[in-house]
Structure formats: structure tokens, C-alpha cells
């Protein structure tokens, strides 16, 4: 493993599989235990440095670190570091001076975790940066798929929605490809980046044509404000062409699952009855997120204390 987890490309197949296997071991070790805690990171300090609101991801990382017995500090700074008056670099150096061993960072600017990694000695974990990547989300998605379908090699995954602005999509394309899955990206052309041709994924504009052939449908959140910038004409048209409703769900294969990284726009990209169906792994993904993040922190910090 590299010292940091900045993007899905930091993990080769061996490392990525190690993370998933470790998550499974941790889950097994904790199952049925009254005290859901391992002593592995006792005395280590993990800082959650969150420049964007994200209850879900922050709590998931916080729980993961606490269950490994690490000391956890939450540092939230709304908006940019600039508007806060202290630069990202100064904040990072301050946290490190206080003895942090790992910094988990969520930031609205693509690349902020990379810069952070160049300034601090401890490990940096990217918890989502701008429209770039969200590697632990991809790991928990891969973990969820493997748990449900028993494999990743050859699994056909459709990722549907605002790929252009999605860090989840970027990380999933890279990681799923690394793990041998076949990814198809489906969106209106306006929500696919120029340059997508260089990604290890197929591209389609036609959800109905792809659905019968896939094992996994991963729906991405689509923000309604995108239509004011003419990425699509209206929420209704978007939902009609690219939303997953019961009718579309019916054409899926028997084993196929439906995923969503959350938070969902029910009625927009995903219908309520789909989100709550037995195919849906949405709640399971959240639980798996804690196990996978424990695995990541364990593997990055589990060695000898620095």
C-alpha cells in the first residue's frame, strides 16, 4: 500500500483486494461482539478535516477510526480555506504539529488532498475532492458488489447520471476496472466530460438499451440546479430518460442489484419503490462503508507507530 489514499489509481489489484479482504475480516471479527471495537490504532490520532458538509461520510470515518480505538478529531470548515482566513497549508501544518497521524480530508476543490499530501508527513485519505475522486466510496461499492454477487471479475456495472460532476463515478470507473469489472457510463451527453474516451469504460446515452445486460446499476445523484445551466431541459425529462423507476427495474436480470451513493433525490434519478426494493443495496452500502474505511485506516496506519 502507498502511504496515502488519494485516488482509486493508488490501488493496484493486489492492494484493492487486500482492502476488501481486510474489511471482510474486520466485519467477521466484530460480528456478534458486544463491544464493537478493536484496539489496533490505540494511541493514534485521526483528523477528519471537512471543508464541505457531509454528515454521512464524516460519521462513517469517525466511526471507523473510533472502532479501531484511534483518537478522532473533527475539524469542519465550511466553505474554502481562503474564506476562513487560514490557508489549507497552514491548517494542515497546525494539525500535524498537534500530532495527527492521518488526515481524512473532504474538500470542494479537486486536488486538495494531493496538495495536502505534499505538505504533511502523515497519511492522507481522500474523503471526496471536488469533482475529482472519492476512493473510499468506490471501495465500499466494490465491497458491496462482491458481497452480493460473490465476485467482481466480469461483473457488468452501469453507472448512470451526472458523470461530469461526479467524483463517485471517477473513482468507481478506475477501481472497478482494476478489479476486473466492466463499466458502462450512461448519461445525457452534456453530463459526460469531454475526454471520456480515454476512460476504461463504455459510454452510452440509452439507459433502456443497457439495463437488460447489467448485473449492477449504480445511480448517481443529479442536482436539480444543473438544469439552470442547460445540462438538461427539466427534471421531468431527465427522470423520464435517465431515472430508474419500477418499469425499468423490471427488465433487470434476476440477480441484478441497484446502488446509490446517497444522498438520493427520490423521484428524480431514482423512484422511491426502487430505492426501497429488495434489489437496493443503498442501506447496506452505508454499513459497509464503515468496515471498508476501517480497513483503509488499518492498512495505512496499522504498521509501527511513526
Amino acid at each position: 500500500m502507498k502511504r496515502h489514499l488519494l485516488e482509486a489509481g493508488d490501488l493496484d489489484r493486489v492492494d484493492a483486494t487486500l482492502v476488501l479482504d481486510t474489511a471482510a475480516q474486520i466485519e467477521a471479527a466484530l460480528t456478534g461482539r458486544e463491544v464493537k471495537k478493536l484496539p489496533t490504532l490505540r494511541g493514534r490520532t485521526v483528523v477528519n478535516l471537512f471543508y464541505e458538509d457531509s454528515t454521512r461520510t464524516r460519521i462513517s470515518f469517525e466511526l471507523a477510526a473510533k472502532r479501531l480505538s484511534a483518537d478522532v478529531i473533527n475539524f469542519s470548515a465550511k466553505g474554502s480555506s481562503v474564506s476562513k482566513g487560514e490557508s489549507l497549508k497552514d491548517t494542515a501544518l497546525t494539525l500535524e504539529a498537534m500530532g495527527s497521524d492521518a488526515i481524512v480530508i473532504r474538500h470542494g476543490a479537486s486536488g486538495a488532498p494531493h496538495q495536502l499530501a505534499s505538505w504533511v508527513r502523515g497519511s492522507v485519505v481522500n474523503a471526496g475532492d471536488g469533482t475529482h475522486e472519492h476512493p473510499t466510496q468506490a471501495l465500499l461499492d466494490a465491497y458491496t458488489i462482491r458481497r452480493r454477487l460473490g465476485r467482481l471479475e466480469g461483473v457488468r456495472v452501469a453507472i448512470v447520471g451526472d458523470v461530469l460532476h461526479s467524483r463517485v463515478a471517477r473513482s468507481n470507473v478506475v477501481l472497478l476496472h482494476t478489479l476486473g469489472a466492466e463499466v458502462t457510463l450512461i448519461a445525457p451527453p452534456t453530463l459526460l466530460p469531454v475526454g471520456i474516451g480515454s476512460w476504461p469504460a463504455e459510454v452510452s446515452y440509452d439507459l433502456d438499451a443497457v439495463l437488460p445486460k447489467v448485473d449492477v446499476v449504480m445511480m448517481l445523484r443529479v442536482q436539480a440546479e444543473r438544469m439552470t445551466a442547460s445540462f438538461f431541459p427539466s427534471a421531468r425529462e431527465y427522470s423520464r430518460r435517465y431515472g430508474l423507476d419500477a418499469r425499468r427495474m423490471a427488465v433487470l436480470g434476476d440477480e441484478a442489484i441497484v446502488m446509490h451513493p446517497g444522498p438520493m433525490n427520490r423521484g428524480m434519478e431514482i423512484a422511491a419503490d426502487v430505492a426501497d426494493s429488495v434489489r437496493s443495496t443503498i442501506v447496506e452500502q452505508v454499513g459497509n462503508g464503515v468496515s471498508v474505511r476501517m480497513a483503509v485506516l488499518y492498512l495505512l496506519l496499522g504498521g509501527a507507530p511513526s
Binding site: S110, G111, D129, G130, T131, H132, E133, R167, R170, P193, V194, G195, I196, G197, S198, W199
Partner: peptide, 17 residues
């Protein structure tokens, strides 16, 4: 933020066509 092409798509930086 940067030239719009393969690299902006990968880096998640808004493209300058």
C-alpha cells in the same frame, strides 16, 4: 481551470475548451 480534454476529465477540473 485547465485545458478541456482527457486530463481535465480525469482530474475533475473544469475544462477550458
Amino acid at each position: 481551470q485547465m485545458h478541456e480534454g482527457d486530463r481535465s476529465a480525469k482530474l475533475g477540473l473544469t475544462g477550458w475548451p
